[in-house]
Amino acid sequence: MSGPETVDRVLMTAAVVFVVVAVALLFVRISRGPSMLDRAIGLDVFAAVVIAGLGAKSAFARDSFYFPIMLVLAFLGFTGSVGIARFIAVRDKPLAHRRPAGGKGEK
């Protein structure tokens, strides 16, 4: 093996180790919580770690096959995060500021 190939192999191995450690720590965060928001953030970061893992695999194989998959996962992670944030924002509003079920508030 030449010098650059050795460096590539070491860096790819380090990337895989970091991704595995990140996934293990994320499973701890998702299982422990303590709140729904912590779990939602953990799942969002999990999507980012999966994308990073696919990027490392793509770099190791020198193949661009996974780029569209990474793009779709990024889009799904973003829309999921926005949806959860909107749900939590509505859920955590004080009752005085919520509109009645009829649709229009009193003035």
Rank of each mutant, 00 (worst) to 15 (best):
M1P: 11
M1Q: 14
S2Q: 03
P4F: 06
E5I: 02
E5V: 04
V7N: 02
D8Q: 12
R9P: 01
R9H: 08
V10Y: 12
V10M: 14
L11R: 09
M12R: 12
A14V: 02
A15V: 01
A15F: 05
F18L: 15
F18A: 15
V20N: 04
V20M: 11
V21F: 15
A22I: 05
A22V: 03
A22Q: 07
A22K: 06
V23D: 10
A24F: 08
L26F: 02
R29L: 13
I30N: 00
I30T: 00
R32Q: 13
R32Y: 07
G33R: 12
G33E: 08
S35Q: 00
S35L: 01
M36Q: 10
L37I: 05
D38W: 04
A40M: 11
A40H: 11
I41T: 12
G42Y: 04
G42K: 07
D44C: 15
D44R: 10
V45G: 11
F46A: 15
F46Q: 08
F46V: 04
A47C: 13
A47R: 08
V49T: 14
V50Q: 03
I51K: 08
A52I: 02
G53T: 00
A56K: 02
K57N: 10
K57T: 10
S58P: 02
S58H: 06
A59E: 09
A59G: 09
A59S: 10
F60N: 10
F60C: 05
R62V: 09
R62P: 00
F65M: 09
F65T: 05
F65L: 07
Y66L: 15
F67C: 04
P68E: 05
V72P: 01
V72N: 07
L73A: 13
L76I: 13
F78G: 07
T79N: 05
T79I: 14
T79M: 11
G80Q: 10
S81A: 15
G83L: 05
I84T: 12
I84N: 10
R86T: 09
R86M: 13
F87P: 00
I88A: 15
V90A: 14
R91Y: 12
D92F: 03
K93N: 06
L95Q: 13
A96G: 02
H97R: 11
H97F: 09
H97E: 14
R98L: 12
P100W: 00
A101R: 09
G102S: 14
G102K: 03
G102P: 01
K104Q: 03
K104N: 01
K104L: 00
K104D: 00
K104H: 01
G105V: 01
G105A: 14
E106Q: 11
E106H: 11
K107N: 07
